[in-house]
Write a protein that binds this DNA or RNA. Sequence first.
DNA 1: CCAGAAATGAAATTTTTCCTCCATTTGATA
DNA 2: TATCAAATGGAGGAAAAATTTCATTTCTGG
Lengths: 280, 280
Amino acid sequence: MANNPTQVSILQDEIRSRYDTLSKRLKQVARYILDNSNSVAFDTVASIARQADVPPSTLIRFANAFGFGGFNEMKQMFRQHLMEETANYTERARLFRQSAGEESSAPETPSEILNMFTMVNGQALQQLAMQVVPEELEHAVALLGEAENIYVIGLRRSFSVASYLTYALRHLDRRAFLIDGLGGMFTEQLSMVGPKDVVVAVSFSPYSKEVVELVELGAQRKARQIAITDSQVSPLAAFSDVCFVVREAQIDGFRSQVASLCLAQTLAISLALGSSKEGQ
Amino acid sequence: MANNPTQVSILQDEIRSRYDTLSKRLKQVARYILDNSNSVAFDTVASIARQADVPPSTLIRFANAFGFGGFNEMKQMFRQHLMEETANYTERARLFRQSAGEESSAPETPSEILNMFTMVNGQALQQLAMQVVPEELEHAVALLGEAENIYVIGLRRSFSVASYLTYALRHLDRRAFLIDGLGGMFTEQLSMVGPKDVVVAVSFSPYSKEVVELVELGAQRKARQIAITDSQVSPLAAFSDVCFVVREAQIDGFRSQVASLCLAQTLAISLALGSSKEGQ
DNA sequence: CCAGAAATGAAATTTTTCCTCCATTTGATA
DNA sequence: TATCAAATGGAGGAAAAATTTCATTTCTGG
C-alpha cells in the first residue's frame, strides 16, 4: 500500500537529494515541505510562508526551482496526493483495529506487533489519565517546585524514565541529579540528601534492591519522596509522600515504559508552566 | 477515533434528511457533496460546479439553504474536517486546546496537562503505527538480528530511548553497547565498529553534533545503520540503511519521547519473537 | 577589501475565486 | 392557458490569492 512511487514521493526524494545544494531560505522551505506535507496541501501561500518563516516569494522560487510553473502547481500535487491518501485512511484504520484486536493469535510480523503495541499503549495512556488523582499530581508538582535539590532514581528498565526526568528538570533550571550508580557510588551520590530535597524514585517489579535501599535512606534523611511504581504495595509506596501507581502495557512479557514516561513528562511540563506563576 | 459526531457528519445527516424536499439542481449538489466530501474541501466553486454539472451560483444557494453565509464557509468546514482526520499530533494539540479550552492562555492544571498529553500521545502512537512502512520495520529487525554487535547512540533528550533500547537488547542476549560518552570517550566507544555491526542512532532536532559525527564514523566503517529521527532531511537520514521518521507529540514546546520509545520497544519485541523463528 | 553575482523581502501587479444581482426559465394552480 | 412564485444561469464586481518585479542585502572569488 502506498509503496508505488507517487508523484509526491518522487518530489520528496528530489528535495532530499538536492537539499544540501539549496540556499538558506530554500532549505527552510524544503524542510517545512518535507515535514508538513499536509500543510502544503491545505494552507495558502501566505500562511505557509508565515509558518516556515520566509517571504511568500521564496515559496514560488522554491516551486520554480523544482520545475513547477508556480507554487500553486506544486500545491495541487500535494492535494491530489492527500486525497488519495485519505481515501485509504479509513481503510487502514479498519485494518489497524482488526490486527490490533486479535489479541489471542500470536502476532507474526513486526508491523502487527507495532499495531498491537501502539494500541495497548494508547489504552494504557488513557487509563493513566483516568487513574491519576489530580490532587496527587498537584502535590507532586508542588513538591518538585519547592525542592532545593531533586534526586532521581531509576535503574535497569526504569533508567530511561529516570534519565529523561533528570534531563527535563535540568532544562527547567532545577537542581536535578540522576542517581546512576556510576562507579558503584549509589550511596555516595545520595549522601547529601536533606529535608528540603525531593527524591523521585521509579521502579517496577522486581524492584531493584538498590532503589529500595536508596529510598529508605532518603526517608531517614527526611527528604520528600515521589514514587512511580506499579503497585500500591510496592516497597516504594511505604516511604513516599506521593505515590503514582502506573499500569504499563504489556505484550508477551515485555512491559512498556510509555505510561511512566508520559507521567514523568507531565510532571516536568506542569512544573514548567506552574513555575512561571509562582514568580521567581 | 472520530466517532463523536463532527460538524461535517451532522451536516451530512441534515442533507440526507432534507434531500427529498430539495429542488432538482439542489439534489444534484447534495448528491455530489455526500459522495465527494474531499472534493468539496479542495476544489474551487467553479470546478465543483462543473463536476456536479450545475452553475456555480447553485452551489452558493445550496450553502445558503443549509445556513451558511456562502459556499466558502461550508467548504472551510469540510477542510477543517479533513485536516482533523489527517492532522499530526502538534496540530491536534492545538485543535484540542481550541475546542476544549475556551480561554486560550488559560492557566492549566497538572491534570489537564496530563489529559491533553496522554491524548496527543495516544494519537501520535496511532499515527506511528500508520506511518511506519512494514518493510522498513522488517528490514530493521533483520539488520538487528544479523548484527554481530549493536551500538546504540542517543544523547540528551534521546538518551532515555537509547538507554532503554540497549537494556532491552541486552536482555535478548544481543551484544549491545550504549554510546554514552562516559569520560568523553565517544569516539573510543565506537572505535571497534565494523561492517558486520549495526549502529542505531536516535536524534531529534537540534541534532547533537556528537551523534552526527558518530553516525558518519559508522558509515565510514561500513556498519549498517538504523536511524530514529524527526525529519526526512535529518543529518542521520543520509547515512542510514533504514530511517524511521517519528512525529512526536508536543505541547508547549515540550516534545514527547513516547512514540520513539514505543518504536524502540517494538524493534526489541519483534527481534525477540522473530529470533525464535530463525532457529539457532 | 572590493566587485559582481546570487539571494532575499516587500510591494505592486496579475490572476483566480467567490459571491451578488438580475434576466430568463420552469412549474404549479386557477 | 394565463399568472405568479420558485428556481435557474450567467455576467460583472469585490475580495483574496498567487505571482512578478525590483531595490536591497548577503555571499563569493579574486
